[in-house]
Structures are given as structure tokens and as C-alpha cells.
Design a protein around this nucleic acid. Structure first.
Lengths: 253, 253
DNA sequence: ACCTGAACACCGTTCAAGT
DNA sequence: ACCTGAACACCGTTCAAGT
């Protein structure tokens, strides 16, 4: 079933289907080499260091040669996102709630290890083999709990989105990573102070009170691991509520 | 209190503090004019249409003149994010759960109206007056439910993240917006078909089954308003669970 | 068929010079 | 003091020419 569709060439290559070239010299590269080089540059210098020229020179080729393998820089970024993802944790034998927590935390950790991922705009549904493996494992972990497939996929979206949000927060406000620095702000401490100076208590009554109460002081307000767990448990409680509603025989909404 | 800190000039301008120039000709522009022009271009042509040159020509000035008002293009993008945000809904008299739903949906709608927002990488904590107003109202809506300020802020993060995730999904997979098109995929239907062709059922057992079961067919799988509500209720159930735990006198975790 | 090198049309940003 | 215009160092991408 499912008539074979014409896929964009990068996606084909992502799945290991490099075209078999019959005539002419053998290719010197493949998508993996190019993408790995790009990832190494991004890890070392950030996404700004990644240009067609810099990637090409790292793999020892002229910039224009890359277009034999990648249709555009966009394509290259797409490939980077899939390649940088490692294997998902094994759900076998784990209660669904434990696995979902593990899964989400692992996603967040990947984002923190490669902060440039947060800058690659496209939060597209996965098409690459590695990202899709994560989705597969999450579905497997939710097998038999009484949700339908669409619901499980929605759960996956919500958890992925949360991992993204939290990672973005940590890399900007927290951690000393120099993302927020060019705004002249170095951490949660500063952030609270800046806000305190800016806010008119009449226009921003609730927020002013929170800031003056120290809600953003130190690691408490926005950035530590406890905060991550907080939001995660929020979501998991929601999932649990849904599951028990389904178990008690209620209709889908 | 809170010693006045040196803020980056854009942020100062965001708060309406244009520098009072004593000598020389009066400035012909202000941050608002420049930012509005940039927003109009982005709405019409997408973020790729926004260059210092295009913005400058729209306000009738040489490209280099913009640097009197904005330190860099980055700054301009930051200003765009704040300026594009409208006033938050009024929480007065609404139950917290209704307001949170309204607030999150309104955030999502803003993102859908200005899809280029999703491409502006930085998911930074808000520093501009408009985005901070949204935070203020959410805190107000949660007044008296028994959460502390840090928890309320965490709730805001989770909801904002969810709005972002959902909006990204809708603009890519759904709606006919041409984001996903250059991957050759036009909607949820196609997405399911493509996946069906790609997946090896042995390597992706759960996902293959879901796809073949039609979980991604039509609007059901990933993209409609029901899906948005689904995730939202998930989160709100989580918040409600937390609130009732607090109400029954449990300690903070 | 792969790869190169020259070339094109653009970027963001600087700086000296005008008013 | 604001704004301009020339200039700089880069981009991503094309295409004809080499092998």
C-alpha cells in the first residue's frame, strides 16, 4: 500500500538512500560526512560559524561542491537536526510515566548539549529516521494505557514542546551561556533587578509584586532543575488524568 | 530600590525612552516607525523580506541611517517581537482556568497571524513592555489560588511553550501555509502517506502501526483545534492538580 | 558524474563626509 | 546630531569549464 511518493532528495539521503551513480568518478562525500562537519562547527562556534564555505573547507572541498549533496543550506540544517539526535531510551519494562519523564528529559538534554538546535527555526514534524525513532518509542511506551494513536501523538507534541521551552529558558536566562549577554543581562539575578527598575507598579501590579517579592531571585524563579520537573509533572499529571478518564469509560472529546 | 542598571539601548527605546537630543536636527524616525515597517514587510513577504535595506526604504531613509535607532538587525527583531503583541485579555472576574485558556489561545492566535514570529529563534524571557503585560495579567489571574510566584511563572512558561509548539505544528503540517511545501509535503494527509512509505515496520513497530491505522489521516492526527484544546486541557488539568494539592496543605516539592 | 573557479546578487555593518 | 554614500567583508547560489 501507500504509493511511493517523490521525496525531496535530502530526505532520501537522510534515510541512507544515496543515489547509485553509474558513470563518472565516485563521490568523495556523503550526506553524513557533510552534516557531521556542520554539527562540529556548530558545536564549537555556534550556528553563525556554519556557512557553506566553512563546512566545505572542513570536508576539504570547494563550497559549490556541496550542492551535489544538499539542495540548499536549509536542507543542510534539516539534516543537522536529524543527525544530532541519538538513540531514544528503551521503554521496555518501564511504567509509562517513568518513560515519558525520561524521554522528555533526554530531549531537553540534547537541546542543552547543542544549543544551536534552538535557533533552527523550523519546529517541523520529524521526517528523519532518528527523530521518528523517538516518536515510535513514545507510542510504544503508551501502548495499552487506553489512549488512541492521535492522543498519543498529541502527548508527544506537548512533551517535545515543553522540552524546547525549558531548554530555551535555561540557555538564555540561566547557565552562564552567553545568549542573553548581548542584552547586558547575565542571569536570573540580573533579570529580576532589571525588571524591578523597569516596571511601573500601577501598570504591572501583579508582576511588580512578584519581582519585589524575589520571585526571580537566584535560581528559584526560572531556571533550575526543579523548575523543569515542575512543568513536566504538570504535563504528566494531565496525561494521567486523561488516562483515568478513559479508563472510567468516558467518550473521547 | 533596585539600582538603575544600564540597559541596552533598544530596550530603553522599547519602553518609550527615546534619548532627548539637544543639538542638531531633530530625528526623523523613532523605533516604533521602524519596527512597524519591519512588521508590515514580514507580514507581507515573510522574514526573508526583512533586510535593513528593505526596512529603510520603506521608511524613506538610507539603510545605514537605521543604526541611529537600532544597534543591529538582532535588535530590530527583538523590537518586532514586542511590538507585534497586542494587549492581553482582561482577567477581571474570570475563573483562573478560563482565563488561562483564553490567554494561551490568544498567544497562539498571535503566532498564527504572524508566522514569522516562529522563526525568530530567541525564546528569551520578555523584556519589552507588551510581553511583560501578558505575564502580569497571568499572575493576576492566578492570584489567591495558593501557588507561589515562582510556580505561577512556571505555569506561564509552560503555557507559552505550548502555544508555540502548537502554532508551529499548525503552520507547518496544517493550514496550507507554504512552510512545509518545499519539503514536497502539503498537509497531514500527505505526511501520513510519506511516512507509510518510509517506515520499516520492524524498526518502527509502534509508529508504523499508528500510521497504518490512519492516525495521521486528515485533520485528525496533528493539526486541528481539537488537538490544541487537547494539549491545553492536559496542562490545565496539571495546574488544577497542583492547586488542589496545595489546597490540601501539602508542602512545596 | 563529480568538482572547481569565476561570477552574481545580495547581505549587515563601518566610517568619513556632508548638513 | 542626523543622514548619506562609498566601501568592506562576507553571504548563498548559478553556471560554464575542466576531468
Amino acid at each position: 500500500m501507500a504509493q511511493e511518493r517523490a521525496l525531496p532528495p535530502v530526505v532520501e539521503r537522510l534515510w541512507g538512500r544515496e543515489p547509485v551513480s553509474r558513470r563518472g568518478p565516485r563521490p568523495r562525500l556523503d550526506l553524513g560526512m557533510i552534516t557531521s562537519a556542520a554539527i562540529e562547527i556548530a558545536d564549537a562556534e555556534g550556528l553563525t560559524g556554519v556557512s557553506m564555505a566553512s563546512v566545505a573547507s572542513r570536508v576539504g572541498v570547494a563550497a559549490t561542491a556541496l550542492y551535489r549533496y544538499v539542495g540548499s543550506k536549509e536542507d543542510l540544517l534539516t539534516a543537522m537536526v536529524d543527525f544530532v539526535v541519538s538513540a531514544p531510551p528503551d521503554p521496555a519494562g518501564r511504567p509509562w510515566r517513568d518513560y515519558l519523564a525520561l524521554w522528555t528529559r533526554a530531549q531537553r538534554d540534547t537541546l542543552l548539549e547543542h544549543p544551536w538546535l534552538l535557533q533552527i527555526a523550523r519546529l517541523t514534524p520529524p521526517l528523519g529516521p532518528r527523530r521518528l525513532l523517538w516518536l515510535d518509542r513514545l507510542l510504544a511506551a503508551l501502548d495499552g494505557v487506553g489512549l488512541d494513536d492521535g492522543e498519543k501523538i498529541n502527548v508527544a507534541s506537548a512533551l517535545t514542546g515543553y522540552a524546547l521551552t525549558d531548554a530555551a529558558l535555561v540557555t538564555t536566562v540561566g547557565g552562564g551561556e552567553p545568549q542573553f549577554d548581548d542584552a547586558g543581562i547575565e542571569g536570573a539575578d540580573d533579570y529580576g533587578e532589571v525588571l524591578a527598575g523597569l516596571l511601573d507598579p500601577e501598570a504591572y501590579p501583579a508582576l511588580s509584586a512578584a519581582v519585589r517579592g524575589g520571585a526571580l531571585r537566584g535560581a528559584e524563579g526560572w531556571v533550575d532543575d526543579g523548575d523543569f520537573r515542575f512543568g513536566l509533572e504538570l504535563l504528566l499529571d494531565g496525561v494521567e488524568a486523561l488516562i483515568s478518564r478513559r479508563a472510567s469509560g468516558e467518550d473521547a472529546g
